[in-house]
Design a protein around this nucleic acid. Structure first.
Lengths: 241, 241
DNA sequence: ACCTGAACACCGTTCAAGT
DNA sequence: ACCTGAACACCGTTCAAGT
């Protein structure tokens, strides 16, 4: 009956249709959110529409309101889901007593998440947070608790743990957003043709920029790790490793 | 005739009406963008609508398309305008030869801008950048040139200037976004009642958080300046002040 | 030259009605 | 119980027509 939705060619304005209709298995909140994440990853946030999301789930769009209060709440769920997926990262299982090492592994795991969901990360970064305990990018009560616990288990005081939480969060947020903004430029360059020199702007007016290979500005993973090490060293020196 | 638009009580869904109709003086691109900035500051990005923006300018909304290609381009203009306003900051006039001091003054100026336009800053942070030379938060060719010039004028090499540009940008981006996310929680708290303890969530499940004054997580300007000094000291040590 | 009206193809959301 | 159809109040954008 409502098994697999066929790629109907009727909707002239929906090239995204005929995608994957999960088909069997009735709806629930998490299934809807997971589909939303996939849609955002593939087509961008702008394209995520209640109606389109519904049609990807083989349903009429208005049906989603039985499971989710509205679009804003859906986006909150998306952020929560992506952030909480980190809990399954095997790299983060063993904490040990070396907190700088834990911070390093956690930072790299968040970085992997950011690059796996580059369209979701800006949401993680700038959605208004709803509790005073959480901060981007680890914006969930569970993660904040996990973070502080890892620090205090290593013998740090609560106050120190919070100072570290703040500095580490700020570092990560800024650097990941910077990396992602570069990724976008690169992607835009590929779209037009292969490796176009970009719609050449008026760089000529700016002598320093004109004589500069833009590749030098690209933040790569090596730069990130270097700055991360410097932060960790600074914190270790201040609070004892 | 079309002088000052009156605060008509007809539009039941537009409490923002009756605001300021600039009235005299015909439209132009900059005037439209300035009005957009004011609208975003007052009512948030979601409320910025071509039609509403038009009505605030005493015009029909469709008229804006004679001056601006579309909404996306309008937002680009908003970002550009807010960022370029920094050029008029008197604190940044004299560069001298002490580049860490310049970085400090520039960082504080950007911070003032972020807090003056808290609804615009996320746009500055996460809009896809269109050239490979610019990075948030100083995302304009002119500013990137100014920044690099200030560094090289102090005797630093181009390569060093770029490394500093990256680290400084990442630091600023992350910390300002963190500060703004707190500001939102505070604002939300005020809306409900005066200083409500917030829609008490399930913090109880998390022992560390439960015994924690959320005020400790609040990043204040002192924390920001402390972390800034640490960054500047680190850079000065690495590249010579 | 500059703006408006009407129209098009969408949105999010509500709710009575269908099965 | 779960979904749909129709409706409402909006969107951004285009374009012929008005002044």
């Amino acid at each position: 009956v409502a098994d697999a939705v066929e790629s109907t060619s009727a909707g002239h304005a929906d090239p995204a249709a005929g995608e994957t209709a999960t088909g069997r298995g009735s709806l629930d909140r998490q299934r809807i959110i997971d589909a939303a994440v996939r849609l955002i990853d593939q087509y961008g946030l702008r394209q995520l529409t209640m109606r389109r999301l519904g049609s990807h789930l083989g349903v009429e769009g208005m049906a989603l309101y039985h499971y989710i209060p509205g679009r804003e709440s859906l986006l909150d769920g998306v952020v929560e889901t992506v952030v909480d997926n980190l809990h399954d990262d095997p790299d983060l299982k063993l904490v040990g007593s070396d907190w700088p090492d834990y911070l390093r592994r956690l930072a790299l795991a968040v970085r992997r998440t950011a690059f796996a969901h580059p369209e979701v990360f800006p949401l993680i970064a700038s959605r208004p947070t709803t509790t005073p305990w959480t901060r981007p990018p680890l914006r969930s009560l569970r993660w904040t608790e996990t973070f502080l616990r890892a620090m205090t288990d290593c013998g740090l005081s609560g106050g120190t743990a919070i100072v570290i939480y703040r500095s580490w969060s700020g570092f990560l947020l800024g650097h990941l957003l910077l990396d992602l903004s570069v990724r976008d430029v690169a992607a835009a360059g590929q779209e037009h043709d292969q490796a176009l020199p970009l719609p050449v702007p008026d760089v000529i007016e700016y002598p320093l920029l004109a004589g500069l290979d833009p590749a030098l500005l690209r933040e790569n993973s090596a730069d990130f790790e270097r700055d991360l090490e410097l932060l960790l060293r600074r914190l270790a020196a201040e609070f004892g490793h």
